[in-house]
Computed example of a mutant assay.
Amino acid sequence: MKQDLRVKKTKKAIHDALITLVKEKDFSRISVRDLCETAEINRGTFYLHYLDKFDLLEQLQQELLDRLWQIVTIRLTEKMHQLSSKPDILLLFATELFTYVDQEADTFYMLLVDAIDPSFQEKIKDLIKRNMLRLTDHETVSTAVPIDYVMAYVTSAAVGILQHWLQRGRTNPPEELARMIVQINLNGPMRMLNA
Score class of each variant (00 low, 15 high):
2 K>V: 07
4 D>T: 05
4 D>P: 02
4 D>Q: 14
4 D>N: 12
6 R>F: 04
9 K>T: 13
13 A>F: 08
14 I>A: 11
15 H>F: 12
15 H>A: 11
16 D>P: 06
17 A>W: 02
20 T>E: 14
21 L>V: 12
23 K>H: 08
24 E>V: 11
24 E>T: 09
24 E>P: 03
24 E>K: 10
25 K>Y: 00
28 S>F: 09
34 D>I: 10
38 T>K: 02
38 T>R: 00
38 T>V: 09
40 E>L: 11
40 E>N: 15
42 N>T: 14
42 N>P: 09
44 G>N: 15
44 G>D: 07
44 G>M: 05
44 G>F: 02
45 T>P: 07
45 T>Q: 13
45 T>F: 04
51 L>E: 12
53 K>L: 05
59 Q>H: 06
59 Q>N: 13
60 L>W: 06
60 L>A: 09
61 Q>L: 01
61 Q>G: 11
62 Q>W: 00
62 Q>Y: 00
62 Q>F: 01
63 E>G: 07
65 L>D: 06
65 L>K: 11
66 D>N: 14
71 I>R: 13
72 V>C: 12
73 T>G: 14
75 R>N: 14
75 R>E: 15
76 L>N: 11
79 K>D: 12
79 K>Y: 04
82 Q>R: 14
83 L>D: 08
84 S>G: 15
85 S>N: 15
91 L>S: 09
93 F>A: 04
97 L>M: 07
102 D>M: 11
102 D>L: 03
103 Q>W: 03
106 D>K: 14
106 D>R: 06
106 D>F: 03
107 T>E: 06
110 M>P: 01
113 V>H: 00
113 V>Y: 01
113 V>T: 05
116 I>V: 13
116 I>S: 02
117 D>R: 11
118 P>T: 04
119 S>A: 10
121 Q>M: 05
122 E>P: 05
123 K>A: 14
124 I>P: 01
124 I>R: 03
124 I>A: 02
125 K>D: 04
127 L>T: 02
128 I>E: 04
129 K>L: 00
133 L>T: 02
133 L>R: 07
133 L>A: 05
133 L>D: 04
134 R>D: 10
137 D>S: 08
141 V>S: 13
142 S>K: 15
143 T>R: 01
144 A>K: 10
144 A>E: 09
148 D>W: 02
150 V>P: 00
153 Y>W: 09
153 Y>G: 00
154 V>H: 02
154 V>A: 03
155 T>Y: 00
157 A>E: 01
159 V>F: 01
160 G>Y: 08
160 G>V: 08
161 I>L: 14
162 L>I: 12
163 Q>G: 02
165 W>M: 10
167 Q>V: 06
168 R>L: 12
168 R>Q: 14
171 T>S: 14
172 N>I: 05
173 P>H: 08
173 P>C: 12
173 P>V: 07
174 P>N: 03
175 E>I: 07
177 L>H: 09
178 A>P: 12
178 A>V: 13
180 M>L: 13
182 V>H: 08
183 Q>D: 10
184 I>T: 08
184 I>P: 01
185 N>T: 13
190 M>E: 15
191 R>F: 13
194 N>S: 09
195 A>K: 12
195 A>Y: 15
